[in-house]
Structures are given as structure tokens and as C-alpha cells.
């Protein structure tokens, strides 16, 4: 396995989102760390970048990308990757995470996280690109298990087998999204905990926890609702299996007040400390 330096953040962080820029630096409430969508900051200046820099002086900031299309066939955008690396260097980000998916075909950007066919060819293809990206960013890369609403034609393995094959071949980390585990289990059938156990959990570098909506009978991973008890069940099991990795409370659509997001982060942190021991979210040695 690639030399994964211990992640610097610990506990439960939140996403740095534009509606909260005006107030986040003044909040007296606990925020363990922040995650950004780097596409919002690469090659930019102005108020948002100023807020990010001020936040980075106070909190550890991790970048979680959405556009690199790890499963895509176009070469990575060299200018973007250079900008991304510069941003990660400036933030002192110990690792970078993105989604195990594709997001573009032949130069057309779909601005979505699209599932690949679960095949050996796709796994090898993704693994090669993940290794290339880690080399170019000069830091470990973690891949997120995405929500998917259809198994792509031609698939020859399960989702868990596919994620494992990619992670093993790329020798990369797993960015474990427990909401996606729950959503996939509900949409495709099966026990969410079985879906969880099928993933290469020993490679987990970070977790995401989020809410979802139900639409026309399917759960949709929209990061726009409070976390439901079923997701917390997966979260508890994941913590027991993975241990004290940083957790990110995602709330990216219908974004409420910062206080409401922090209430949800507090709830996740309470579960974290309940499962892993008092002080675990603070990185306490006693935990």
C-alpha cells in the first residue's frame, strides 16, 4: 500500500460552503476540520479564496473533488491538476479524495458522478489513472464509493468487488461514504451492513455521512436532508470496523444555517465518541 501518512484532521468536520462564508469565521461552535470542493477554488481569487485562506489558518482543510473523472478516458486536464496541486500544497492537505466514477465523455462534462461498468477492464483503467493522479499530486488519493442508481450493462462483478479491485490495483485509500452504502443497499436490495462489509474498509482514510431524499421510489443521494437512523446504523458499524478516521458531515443542497449544520455535526460527533470512546473525536490518546 502506498505510504499513507496519518491524516491530520480528526473528529467530525463540515463542508465549507458559500452560504456560510460570512459567518463561519465568527462561530464560537466546535468545528473539527473543513472539507472543500476544490473546483470552487482552483485558479480563483477574491472573497471566496480569502475566506478559504482565513479558514485554513484555523482549521485543517481537506479537498474532495468532483470533476476529475477518475474513470474517464480523456487525459487529466493538466492545467487543472497543476492548479489543484498548488491549492493542496498551500492548504497542507495530507491527501486528496475524489469519486470512483466518470464525469465526462469525449470532452463533454456532465457535472455528475456517473457509475462505470463493474468490469476488470474498468477497474484496471481506473487504477492506472488513480496512480497517475497520486503521482502528479504528490500525495495519497482516496476514492469514494459513489451512489449509483443503475448497474451498468456489461458488469461482471458486484459494486464491492469493483471498489476493492480498483483500490487494490491502485494501492489507494478508500473515502468511505456511509450514506452511499445505505442508499445503494436500499435501491438495489440487500443489507446495508453487507454492502458495507464488501468494501475494502481496511483502506479507509476518511468517511462521509449525509442525508438523502426519496424520489419516485428510489433514494437519491442529494446531501440535502438530516441523517436518517439507518445511515447512523451503517456509521456505527463502520466506526467499529475502521476506527478513528476523520468524518465529514455533508450538506450540499438546501443548505440550512451554519448552526443547523453544526447541530447535525454535533450529533454525528456524539455517535463517534459513543462508539470509539470519550474524546475520540478530539484525537485524544485516551480514546
Amino acid at each position: 500500500m502506498r505510504n499513507l501518512a496519518p491524516p491530520k484532521p480528526h473528529g467530525v468536520g463540515i463542508g465549507l460552503r458559500p452560504p456560510h462564508y460570512p459567518e463561519i469565521l465568527d462561530t464560537p461552535r466546535r468545528i473539527d476540520w473543513l472539507e472543500i470542493v476544490p473546483e470552487n477554488f482552483v485558479h480563483t481569487a477574491g472573497a471566496a479564496m480569502r475566506t478559504l485562506r482565513a479558514c485554513a489558518e484555523r482549521w485543517q482543510v481537506i479537498a474532495h473533488g468532483v470533476s476529475l473523472s477518475l474513470g474517464g478516458r480523456e487525459p487529466f486536464d493538466a492545467d487543472y491538476v497543476r492548479g489543484l496541486k498548488a491549492l493542496l500544497d498551500e492548504l497542507g492537505a495530507p491527501y486528496y479524495t475524489d469519486h470512483l466514477c466518470y464525469a465526462a465523455i469525449d470532452g463533454v462534462a456532465y457535472h455528475d458522478l456517473l457509475p462505470l461498468p463493474f468490469t476488470d477492464e474498468a477497474a484496471l483503467h481506473c487504477a492506472g489513472r488513480i496512480r497517475e493522479l497520486a503521482d502528479r499530486l504528490e500525495r495519497p488519493v482516496g476514492i469514494e464509493n459513489i451512489s449509483f442508481y443503475a448497474v451498468m450493462p456489461g458488469s461482471t462483478m458486484t459494486h464491492g468487488e469493483f471498489v476493492t479491485a480498483v483500490a487494490e490495483e491502485a494501492d489507494c485509500a478508500l473515502m468511505l461514504d456511509v450514506n452511499n452504502v445505505f442508499v445503494n443497499a436500499r435501491n438495489h436490495g440487500g443489507d446495508p451492513l453487507e454492502w458495507l462489509r464488501a468494501l475494502p474498509l481496511h483502506r479507509t482514510i476518511q468517511m462521509h455521512i449525509a442525508g438523502h431524499i426519496e424520489e419516485d421510489g428510489r433514494l437519491v443521494d442529494n446531501h440535502g436532508r438530516p441523517i436518517v437512523p439507518g445511515v447512523y446504523s451503517v456509521f456505527r458499524e463502520a466506526l467499529q470496523r475502521v476506527g478513528a478516521v476523520p468524518v465529514l458531515l455533508e450538506w450540499d443542497s438546501d443548505i440550512p444555517s451554519l448552526d443547523r449544520v453544526l447541530d447535525e455535526a454535533d450529533a454525528a460527533r456524539a455517535v463517534y465518541d459513543e462508539v470509539l470512546g470519550p474524546g475520540a473525536s478530539s484525537g485524544s490518546d485516551a480514546a
Partner: peptide, 16 residues
């Protein structure tokens, strides 16, 4: 099915 065939078939559907 190859990945190339997959992308060729998916693009028109994704673009509507």
C-alpha cells in the same frame, strides 16, 4: 463489452 463501447453507447443517452 469494452470501455470504449460503453462510452460510445452512453454519451447519446446522457445528452438526451
Amino acid at each position: 463489452m469494452t470501455l470504449d463501447a460503453f462510452y460510445r453507447a452512453m454519451a447519446p443517452m446522457l445528452e438526451g
